[in-house]
């Protein structure tokens, strides 16, 4: 009973907040609704017994990605009238994307029902390895069978990260950068001079 109740609460909250992401006029509110949607999706993951995925969803999407979204949206000076003006122009594109997503969802569900891939059976009986916790099962698979894919995914991400840094980092000649080690190594004797100037005369440095 608790599971059913929890499922309907999480599911309806996901859908409601997803609708609010689109409907709310303020982009900051949109991002905050998106966070609610992520959070409830994590709740659904807990219900199917994938607690590791649920925690990753919260850590990665809510904890990192959504914060960056929020950052960007807060910093931007957004003209709401201009945002809504392009609705008619972009409508066909939006419709096309929606149709593609719908088709993908139908195909995915169909493939899952047909049991074509050996990832798990539709009734959920073979979903998890018996007697092993979520993390152990995923780890055993990732670091043995899918080791190559896993490592190459890591390398691709590293390359992307370094690429982004290289593209955005530019050395400007006119800035005075700080050398921390020099700041730390500096002693009072080198920085200050005690003088006793005669009255009426200035100090020559």
């Amino acid at each position: 009973m608790i599971q059913t109740l929890a499922f309907y609460i999480f599911a309806s909250l996901v859908i409601a907040s997803a609708v609010m992401v689109i409907m709310s006029r303020n982009p900051v509110h949109s991002v905050l609704w998106l966070i609610v949607a992520f959070f409830n999706a994590a709740g659904l993951m807990v219900l199917v017994g994938a607690e590791f995925i649920a925690m990753l969803l919260v850590i990665v999407y809510v904890g990192a990605v959504a914060v960056l979204f929020l950052f960007v949206v807060m910093m931007l000076d957004i003209d709401f009238a201009e945002l809504r003006a392009g609705f008619v122009k972009n409508f066909p594109l939006g419709l096309a994307i929606a149709l593609v997503l719908l088709a993908e969802m139908v195909m995915g569900l169909g493939a899952y029902k047909a049991g074509g891939m050996q990832l798990g059976t539709p009734d959920g009986t073979a979903a998890a390895a018996v007697g092993a916790s979520n993390i152990k099962a995923i780890g055993a698979l990732l670091y043995s069978k899918y080791l190559f894919l896993f490592e190459s995914a890591g390398i691709i991400l590293l390359v992307a990260m370094i690429g982004a840094i290289v593209l955005t980092h530019r050395q400007r000649g006119d800035t005075r950068g700080q050398v921390i080690s020099r700041q730390v190594a500096r002693r009072p004797e080198e920085a200050t001079v005690n003088t006793q100037p005669e009255v009426g005369k200035g100090v020559q440095l």
């Binding site: 900051v28 905050l32 966070i35 607690e51 590791f52 925690m55 990753l56 919260v58 850590i59 809510v62 904890g63 990192a64 914060v67 929020l70 807060m74 916790s133 979520n134 993390i135």
Partner: peptide, 25 residues
Amino acid sequence: DINVGLLYVLAISSLGVYGVVMAGW
């Protein structure tokens, strides 16, 4: 007493920033 206790702590502590960011905005 969950299997992913430490991850749960990480997940929750990463939520803490929202209270501050939302207040600031």
